[in-house]
Design a protein around this nucleic acid. Structure first.
Lengths: 199, 199
DNA sequence: CATATTGCTGACCGAACGTTCAGTCTGGGG
DNA sequence: CCCCAGACTGAACGTTCGGTCAGCAATATG
């Protein structure tokens, strides 16, 4: 593995763990097994390294935008399809815990504000919801802008602080079981909340 | 205002703004208008200062626990009562933005893990939900543990990153209008999701 | 063979960090 | 009056920070 790549990999780990101001160049260098100065050979500053890490991660993780497209083009025939499939947002996030922390750090430390998701993806999603409302699949009084935000927040929020909620549940449950129990119940509530009563 | 108090006040501001590792003793001292060394006269370390800030804030803000008691003892006759009243969690949080950031920093930076809310408060809330289920006010298939978590998350998540969601909404809306539109729609979804269909 | 170019290192810089300490000022009790 | 305790300061401590720079080894180019 080349020096640049190993630096990026180590940098991601350290930034995700400690945030931008908590991360130190020395630690990144020693974790990557290279000299500190090599970092400045490949990247012009700590800030730029952070940006590069984010950009690289977005590229590698297949970009959330792409997921959004799949979300908006779902058939939404059943609760399962939207939330529990392999492509569901929730399980996508579970496989990318770094992403959660990166977003959280960015949110708190300021820095970049990414227009996320892309405006077209946003439009697609809300249009899709309106379409489903016309077809009578979703209650007409549901706000097509609020719904996707609510959905994202529930998923994000769970992984952001699921450890904090552990104590609400009976002891002895594994992480996976906790995830499943939460998302199943939470999504059932939302599903019942957005589908018309006659179902 | 005494030295100790002005230090605590400045410390809270800086910690809330920049997090623990991003905050510097020098900045706290200069904002408090005192010498750096005075901080170490009153507090034994940066860590302990952070703890003291949290403890003090919890005390001053009237403790979330107390709110939880009011939450659990609500009559829950209507959506409004739970979510929109002056005592509602959502509007409570809106008046305490520092609290949101403090929780988020703690969540990310590790440090203390507060048992929050208190176990008895937790039990009270879930018992209350079960009671309402028996009375037929809440669907029997709603998970009494998941519901309060979902509720908290939606409120927390909104204030944590409402600026990020601005672009989803039409331009020109004020913060207040945004808050109202979101919580109204979101709570309507949840309300519809937890109340039996025959209502 | 000479010469750039590139990946990389170790020694080093000034600034900022958290922390310490000797010492000043002030007010109250003997 | 003296004396002590507590609030408070300014100058420094050693360490770590982000960042620089001259130079080495290797490879590619002429």
């Amino acid at each position: 593995m080349g020096g640049r790549e190993s630096i990026l990999k180590a940098a991601e780990a350290v930034f995700v763990e400690r945030g931008f101001s908590g991360a130190s160049i020395s630690e990144i260098a020693s974790r990557a097994g290279v000299a500190k100065s090599l970092i400045y050979h490949h990247f012009e500053s700590k800030d730029q390294l952070w940006c590069e890490v984010i950009r690289e991660h977005n590229r590698r993780s297949g970009l959330l935008e792409r997921f959004y497209e799949t979300l908006a083009s779902q058939d939404m025939d059943s609760l399962d399809e939207l939330t529990r499939g392999e492509k569901g947002f929730f399980y996508f996030l579970r496989e990318h815990p770094e992403l959660i922390r990166m977003m959280s750090w960015l949110n708190l430390e300021g820095g970049l504000d990414m227009d996320f998701p892309h405006p077209e993806a946003r439009g697609k999603i809300t249009d899709r919801i309106r379409e489903l409302q016309e077809k009578g699949r979703i209650r007409p009084d549901v706000d097509p802008v609020v719904l996707p935000i609510l959905y994202m927040q529930v998923c994000f929020g769970w992984f952001e602080s699921r450890w904090k909620y552990r104590r609400w549940f009976p002891e002895g449950l594994s992480d996976r079981e906790l995830d499943a129990r939460f998302i199943q119940s939470a999504m059932e509530i939302i599903w019942n909340g957005i589908t018309p009563d006659e179902d």
